[in-house]
Nucleic acid binder design. Structure first.
Length: 279
DNA sequence: AACATGCCCAACCGCTATAAT
DNA sequence: TATTATAGCGGTTGGGCATGT
């Protein structure tokens, strides 16, 4: 009886005290990673023991704070360091499909927390996309005023040069033609943009639905953009687009004969609940 | 050296869903 | 069934640090 109590109650409690205390005093990461005691906390954290522990050791953390600190920082399987190119590409691809579903994205990146991915997105990837001229939410080329600002400034500078008479007549003619074409393109893009996404985005026009499951929002956007013929001349980087529906075949175990096949949105392939029902 | 600025990231906040009582 | 506690999630904040002036 006493032996059981010691094993079940006191050892995990002691382990957690040591873990938190040592970390709060700046214990090194190697200890946390190699230590087997952290696994006890994995068990007890699910059992509402945290508030008792918090009050017992006088930490300035509530249970919730402890849990967050564990999941986002102390957990031994957390991967540290910079994101690799592969991880970056994975995040971009998944974000195109899932949007700001950080936990869903994190589930496909072992060792990375949703918080870490969210921070990486907000501090790096989002800016990167904006600099590249893409809307970070839709992964589509931006059509708003600020995204075309550099081109507008270039046009304004060109006009100044022409008015100053600093350019040769022939060069002026060539550049002016190009500028006029660019301005027409810009105007067309902006007109289309204002028609497609005036105040409410994503657009609400009806789009294709497969197998009674609505397509992901980004896919819906893409369908609508595609129907409007938008962005067809300069397709965005493949990593920025959600992938098309995937064909899934149901095969007979006996003779490998294909019984039937379905088109399923990639987002649903990542959805365990849907796949369980599908199976 | 002192201050300003910008970046990074752990932690916090508020909300919803779920479990326990 | 109603209430309370906890877990999980996404958005946001603020402190520490590096760099620039």
């Amino acid at each position: 009886m006493w032996q059981q109590m010691v094993t079940v109650v006191f050892v995990p409690l002691l382990a957690y005290l040591v873990l938190v205390r040592m970390h709060d005093r700046g214990c090194d990461e190697t200890f946390l990673r190699s230590s087997h005691i952290s696994k006890y906390y994995m068990k007890i954290s699910k059992e509402a023991c945290v508030p008792a522990i918090v009050s017992a050791i006088g930490l300035n953390r509530c249970g919730k704070s402890c849990r967050l600190r564990w999941t986002n920082y102390l957990r031994p399987d957390i991967k540290r360091g910079k994101f690799s190119l592969e991880e970056e590409e994975t995040i971009l691809s998944l974000h195109a499909i899932l949007g700001n579903k950080w936990s869903a994205i994190a589930s496909h990146l072992p060792g990375r927390t949703d918080n870490e991915i969210k921070n990486f997105w907000n501090t790096h990837l989002k800016k990167k996309l904006i600099q590249m001229g893409f809307d970070p939410m839709t992964h589509r080329p931006r059509t708003d005023f600020f995204s075309t600002l550099p081109q507008l400034i270039a046009l304004a500078n060109l006009r100044e040069l022409i008015l100053d008479g600093r350019l040769q007549a022939e060069a002026v003619q060539t550049m002016a033609n190009g500028a006029a074409a660019a301005a027409a393109d810009l105007e067309a893009m902006n007109m289309l943009g204002s028609q497609m996404m005036p105040s409410s985005f994503p657009p609400t026009m009806p789009c294709a639905v497969l197998d009674n499951h609505p397509p992901p929002a980004n896919q819906e956007n893409r369908e609508c953009y595609s129907m409007a013929g938008f962005g067809q001349e300069e397709p965005p980087h493949p990593l920025l687009l959600p992938p098309p529906p995937t064909e899934v075949s149901v095969v007979n175990h006996g003779d490998d004969r294909i019984i039937s096949s379905y088109n399923i949105w990639p987002e649903l392939l990542l959805d365990n609940q849907f796949m369980a029902e599908f199976a």
